[in-house]
Amino acid sequence: MSVALVVAVGALLTWVLWPEPESEPRAREYRDVTACLLTGASGVQSPEAAPIWSGMQDASVETLVKVQFLEVDGPQTAENAGTFLASLAQSRCDTVITVGDAPVAALQSIAPRFPNVRFVGIGGGASLDNVSVVEAGAPDDLRSVIRRLVTEMA
């Protein structure tokens, strides 16, 4: 009987002291709002795009707005960038931010075709009904401006 008691106590202690399983990481549930960035061939690593992308990511963490980026592949012309810009506008981006000469130049011909999408040109372009222009500035200032812009989408 004492062996049975020792086994029972051992089983009880094992059950009580057994570590809790680590909780499963929870998936982040994003809002149904997406901000997109169109850059030149250097992507988000370029000096002009890096603060924009950082500001978008900051806003995403705060508000759960989805953010994504796309690089213009091939010739860095307004015509070529226009195909990438139209692709973002058609892929459910609520706001498309453009940075770089070719992406910003493509705004004038593409933005009027997508009146329900908000476009932002960094450092150039002309304001249209659905296009805003943000002047290029110090990286920290740009990061703050873009974070605020994307946060307002939420």
Rank of each mutant, 00 (worst) to 15 (best):
L13V: 09
R28G: 10
T95Y: 10
A4P: 13
A111Q: 01
P47L: 12
V96E: 07
V6H: 08
E24L: 07
F69V: 00
L88P: 03
L107Q: 08
A126C: 00
D32T: 12
A138I: 13
S144V: 01
S91K: 04
S42R: 14
R31M: 10
D94M: 09
Q57S: 09
V134N: 11
V9W: 13
W18I: 01
L13Q: 05
S91E: 08
Q68M: 08
I52V: 15
A105H: 02
F84Y: 12
D140R: 11
I97T: 14
R26G: 11
M1E: 14
L38S: 03
D141I: 14
V3Q: 15
K66E: 00
E22C: 11
P75W: 15
W18A: 13
I146W: 04
A111G: 11
S91N: 14
G125A: 02
N80K: 02
A106D: 07
R31L: 15
L12C: 08
A41Y: 13
D73R: 09
S46V: 07
S60M: 10
E29M: 06
A89R: 12
I122F: 04
R92I: 10
V72S: 03
L107K: 06
V120W: 07
G100N: 09
G74K: 00
D140C: 08
L38P: 00
W18M: 11
L5Y: 04
S54K: 13
R113F: 13
D94T: 04
N80A: 09
C93E: 00
Q45Y: 12
T63K: 01
P75A: 10
V65F: 01
E22N: 11
G125N: 09
L38V: 06
R143M: 05
S132Y: 01
W53H: 13
L142A: 09
G137L: 05
A27Q: 07
P19W: 04
R26V: 12
S60G: 07
G124D: 04
V44M: 07
A35L: 06
V61M: 15
A4C: 13
W15F: 15
T63I: 00
D141V: 11
P47T: 14
S109C: 07
P103A: 13
A8P: 00
G137P: 01
V131Q: 05
P115K: 03
A41S: 15
N130D: 02
Q76R: 12
N130A: 07
S144L: 04
